[in-house]
Amino acid sequence: MLSADLPWLQAPLADALARARSHALLVQGPAGVGQLELAVRLAQSWLCESAAAGQPACNHCPSCKLFASGTHPDFQMLLPEALEAPARESLGLPFEEPDAKAGKAKPSREIKVEAVRNLLAFAQATSARGKAKVVVIFPAEALNGVAANALLKTLEEPSGLLRFALASHDSASLLPTIRSRCQPLPLALPERSAALAWLEAKGVKDAAGLLDATGGRPQQALEWAEAGLTDAAWQAIPKRVARGEVAALSDLAPPRVIDALQRLCHDLVRRSHGQPGQFFAPAALPSPKRAAPLLAWDAELRRAARHADHPLNAGLWIEALVAQAQAAVTASVR
């Protein structure tokens, strides 16, 4: 039961099922709190053959069993190639690795128009079990411009019993025409106590520190812990970066390096204005006196983020980022 694994989704799920008035819902909120899980649970509930209208899926009827096995004929999930395997694994759904492509092309992080065209063929077919046909799209902002436009007409005028559950952690970047065709379903950060209890049940040590490091996002905190990041290592980053220690970040993937430095920059800017940091403990942070060097560094980080998925030489790229960070922090504390 997806909502049981993420207990803070039970109330939003019940609310969504009770007040859904549109054939398309847009689950939106910060990353790492369960947008995909909620969208999938909505889809299962819409397809359930035993639950009363407006009630969550029963998990026992033939439809729910087909859903859990990943073979329900009236359900499709649209994901970027790069997220297909980890997303299905996190949901406990089966996944077949695709054949190696010629030239070993890197899996795309976009949802392309070819995938939407295949989806439209599914959408136009008759429901196999007669209950509904449901499509989950995640993350919705991964739809590139051509793919989003190809989806518009079906999203506005779905055929038969077709329903959509879009999930996004950056809904502002969606086309306005996509947003206007969906009923919004906000998903907030879970209560801290619920998030900590869930992380501790997953065996995460120093869960409170990692939860703070991720801005209250429990799924992201779990992902960091499973990747080997400890709270102690996280809290050491500011001072190690200030000393120019590349090893402070060298074990992190390039996108996570940028993410860590942006969080550090954010906290230092807050400190320079007399406010507490958000992602690091107070004792871990220097005490900057000037915000200007930090704001310039923030602009550099935003430019570097454009290449975080494919730096030409990751090692040299991280060295350059640490050098920039050291210079900015040094200038800010003078």
Rank of each mutant, 00 (worst) to 15 (best):
S3W: 13
L9G: 10
A11F: 07
L13W: 08
L13Y: 07
D15S: 14
A16M: 08
R19V: 00
A24G: 06
V27Y: 03
Q28C: 09
A31F: 00
W46R: 03
A53E: 14
A57P: 09
H60R: 11
C61W: 09
C64Q: 05
A68P: 05
P73M: 09
D74L: 12
Q76W: 08
P80E: 10
E81Y: 04
L83K: 00
A102W: 12
A102E: 15
G103W: 03
P107Y: 05
T126E: 13
S127N: 09
S127D: 10
A128G: 08
V136I: 04
I137W: 05
E141C: 07
E141F: 06
A147G: 03
A148K: 01
A148Q: 03
A148Y: 04
L151I: 09
L152G: 07
T154Q: 07
E156D: 09
L162Y: 11
F164G: 02
L166F: 03
L166K: 03
S168A: 11
C182S: 02
C182Q: 01
Q183P: 01
L185G: 00
L185D: 00
L187G: 09
L189T: 05
E191N: 11
L196S: 06
A197S: 13
K202G: 11
G203L: 10
D206K: 03
A208N: 07
D212N: 01
A213P: 04
T214L: 12
G215P: 02
G216P: 02
A221G: 03
E223F: 13
W224R: 12
T230K: 01
P238L: 14
P238C: 15
R240E: 15
G244L: 13
E245L: 06
A247N: 11
S250L: 14
P255Y: 06
P255N: 07
V257T: 10
Q262Y: 00
R263T: 04
H266F: 14
D267W: 12
Q275N: 04
Q278D: 05
A284P: 00
P286M: 11
P286F: 09
R290D: 08
A291W: 01
A291H: 01
A296V: 13
R303N: 10
A304R: 12
A305C: 13
A305F: 10
H307F: 15
A308L: 08
A308F: 08
L316D: 06
Q326P: 08
A331E: 15
S332M: 12
